[in-house]
Design a protein around this nucleic acid. Sequence first.
DNA 1: GTCTATATTGGGATAGAC
DNA 2: GTCTATCCCAATATAGAC
Lengths: 212, 212
Amino acid sequence: MNRANNIINSDTPQSTEAVILKAASEVFMERGFDGARMQEIADRAGLNKALLHYYYRSKEKLFNAVFERVLIEMIEGMIQIFEDNLTVFESIRSFFKKHQEILMKNKLLPLFMLNEIQRAPELLIDLYPVDRIQVVRKKFYSDVNNEQHMGIIRKDVDPHDLFLNILSLSVFPFAAKPLLKGFYSMDENDFQSMISHRKENLADFVINAIKA
Amino acid sequence: MNRANNIINSDTPQSTEAVILKAASEVFMERGFDGARMQEIADRAGLNKALLHYYYRSKEKLFNAVFERVLIEMIEGMIQIFEDNLTVFESIRSFFKKHQEILMKNKLLPLFMLNEIQRAPELLIDLYPVDRIQVVRKKFYSDVNNEQHMGIIRKDVDPHDLFLNILSLSVFPFAAKPLLKGFYSMDENDFQSMISHRKENLADFVINAIKA
DNA sequence: GTCTATATTGGGATAGAC
DNA sequence: GTCTATCCCAATATAGAC
């Protein structure tokens, strides 16, 4: 269980501050900012509400602390996946494999992030240097372009679209988990095995879609 | 602007009940159940809070009225798209085209639905006869199987996966709109033209991925 | 630093006049 | 049916003892 794959659960926290942050992460992830209660966070941390305010002043500040941490680790995690020097096909394979594993350990992450950014879009700009991720995207784009010239990837593939498609295929099932459970009447195990299956097969889907 | 494509905005409402429902739809969609305020709904409807309770008893009942309507229209809309007797490739083309148009008119719909079902999964089962959508899925599956035997679609395509992939590609960008805006620094127009672009090209992506 | 007790306000819900 | 005024609880936040 290496650090990169583990966004919410820190390693057996010691300091009160860390205990609070861990409990807060859980509750905010499950219920969102508006649905979360300071009381529940205190209960889960085994402390009282007053202490939360002692350390973090307000619910909003506590939330921001949680969100910033989650946001940074998520993006850094995604960046790492793309960092190795691989062919585009290999990158795609490795991306799905690693990304599905990350999300499997943090099933609530996608919906949480999408939600809170919709609620307060400034969170994204305020808390993160957005251009950090541009570097990776640009590299991916030029890699794709190269392989298009080499006749490996179809010429009509737009790298920008491709990136978004990959992200959609990877993330959506997690955001839609409760919906899928309802429609397909799946339980937690079914969902898990669906993801393992996708982890192996999504790359083929995409590669077939783009290969020349 | 036909009815099927129009989930939130009803046609120039008359009755107070309808005015409330319309205002409530807007506010719940924008802020979710937990973030929504009865006061804001009243303000937008040009009425006072007391009337909301007069007609709908409680916030929760008002929400359920909104949610049920949205859920049913959404599913019925999706079902209609698949109802025509087309080849799989044609279905896919027509699905993306129509579905992107529906979502374009209700950009907040996907995230709203995903959210609220995560918050209260029983909404799905309580408010809708789930098996209604199974019929369409089953038909799609058997169509795919047929065309696999005819050598049109790759044998290793799992219809179940394919369905989820199509949904992911169609829905995710809307759920992630604020995130995309942040990362790509897009404005509303950029987003709109990205969707028009995808409306035309998503089908090719999928068809390339699955054609034998 | 951590607790109990309390202040304060936001917001869902109701009473009652018209 | 629609309004104003009010109730009341839940939830954030603070005071102050230890």
